[in-house]
Write a protein that binds this DNA or RNA. Structure first.
Length: 426
DNA sequence: TCTGGGGTCCTAGGACCC
DNA sequence: TCTGGGGTCCTAGGACCC
């Protein structure tokens, strides 16, 4: 990775005829770590990761850290063994959200057809922008230059005929690169890659394919689709066969709807009593309810997730009669679902609550929600504390004020890992 | 210091209705 | 009396992605 004074690389550009290559995949380089280094320039050139906590993992690693083998999602202990001088920084989600918004504003100057994949990644359909901004390669380089000049961050861009190839192209030129995959050379680019490069091939599917003697995308392409399907399932089999030939008909979708919203937490110390669990669920229900309300959503399916000390997992979901967003209903249902698991002497490292079947809630729907879900005494009373809690939390962090019900007299509150990215640095 | 937290999609069995 | 097939919804679990 270049020093921050350098311009984006031009030597890293692998060009070619970009006719018909209307899809860009832009991927920020070591995004969280780069935002942290921008805040603290003295860390430039040192191995830096964002993450941590007692039971934490690496959320992002600078390229200096990656030289030691440190990777995203790696347990922090392992990362420190690989690189004892590693600089470990707690996440600052507000800073990443802010930087992300500025990056996406640059994308929006090029085309309205932007599909975010995460805070630091997006597909752009630039087919309608040629008259204004030139070739896709020129647009890609323009984005890279602006991201660097205006935000002091770097990104890599893949330019290709479809989303899947564009994503592989950006991965192939990281960091600080630009790569075009010309239409006529897609198979030359694709077929030598390992099958694990394909979207949807992770550890398990990779092992399954290896057992079939398939190691490269080219070998996968030459295997009959029905054989692939028998091994990995019908839908996945079709998709992999298509991808192996470079076919991907998915359009850039700039307004995808959210399908679920969840809140979960891993605890420093395993929870062992029902009282601990209920208080933890109350915190999660508050958090989830706040996020549902912020987006105006209600969910008609509510689920709990439990991960045990041995990493085994159990889930329970229930469809409820009305769309729900208030924390008390979420807690009521979540507690019932937890009880249905019938656990005896559990050791619980993680709890989560999830809502799906989401719908925008107007006031009528909310009223139905209240009337339908709870006993009268619970249901009719509006929650006079809600606006105050929301305000205080938004200003001082989510632990600034807790409901009385979330504080157990005479007992320690369940301590949590790391914290929620910048919200808990009280 | 052994494994985060936010998601999406798929599968498979059963219930229920027509 | 016995036996259909299709469609939709619900539930539990798992793989995968960033």
């Amino acid at each position: 990775m270049g020093r921050s004074g350098d311009l984006p690389r031009t030597s890293g550009i692998t060009g070619g005829d970009d006719t018909g290559c209307d899809i860009l995949h832009v991927d920020m380089d070591a995004f969280f770590a780069s935002v942290e280094i921008r805040k603290r320039p003295e860390l430039a050139g040192r191995p830096v990761v964002v993450g941590g906590g007692h039971r934490g993992v690496v959320a992002a690693a600078s390229y200096e850290a990656r030289r030691y083998g440190v990777r995203s999602a790696m347990p922090m202990g392992q990362a420190l063994r690989l690189c004892p001088q590693l600089v470990v920084l707690p996440p600052d989600r507000a800073a990443y959200t802010d930087a992300s918004a500025k990056v996406f504003a640059i994308f929006a100057d090029v085309t309205p057809l932007v599909e975010p994949l995460s805070l630091d990644e997006a597909f752009l359909d630039v087919s309608g922008a040629r008259k204004l901004f030139g070739t896709p390669t020129e647009m890609a380089q323009n984005i890279r230059t602006r991201v660097h000049a205006e935000l002091q961050l770097r990104c890599s861009v893949g330019v290709a005929p479809n989303k899947f190839l564009a994503k592989l192209a950006s991965a192939a030129c990281k960091p600080d690169g630009l790569r075009v995959v010309p239409v006529e050379s897609t198979l030359d680019f694709l077929h030598p890659l390992p099958v694990a490069a394909l979207w949807g091939v992770g550890r398990k599917t990779g092992e399954t394919l290896h057992r079939m003697g398939i190691r490269t995308v080219g070998e996968l392409a030459r295997t009959p689709t029905d054989a692939i399907q028998r091994a990995v399932g019908v839908a996945m089999g079709v998709r992999l066969s298509e991808l192996a030939w470079g076919h991907d008909v998915r359009l850039v979708d700039s307004d995808r709807e959210e399908k679920s919203i969840s809140a979960e937490q891993t605890y420093d110390l395993d929870l062992t009593t029902r009282a601990q669990v209920v208080h933890a669920l109350a915190d999660l229900a508050d958090e989830l309810g706040r996020r549902l309300a912020a987006r105006g959503f209600g969910g008609r399916t509510i689920g709990v997730k439990v991960r045990f000390a041995d990493f085994a997992m159990a889930t329970r979901v229930r469809a409820v009669p009305h769309w729900v967003s208030d924390p008390r209903t979420l807690l009521t249902v979540a507690s019932e679902l937890y009880d249905e698991l019938g656990l005896d002497q559990p050791r619980i490292r993680l709890l989560g609550i999830r809502t799906e079947s989401l719908r925008q809630m107007d006031s009528v729907a909310r009223q139905l929600d209240f009337d339908g879900m709870l006993s009268d005494s619970q249901a009719r009373a509006p929650d006079p504390l809600a606006p105050v809690l929301e305000l205080a939390r938004s200003r001082f962090g989510k632990t600034a004020i807790l409901r009385g019900s979330a504080v157990r007299p005479g007992a320690d509150r369940a301590s949590t890992v790391g914290g929620n990215a910048g919200e808990t640095k009280s």
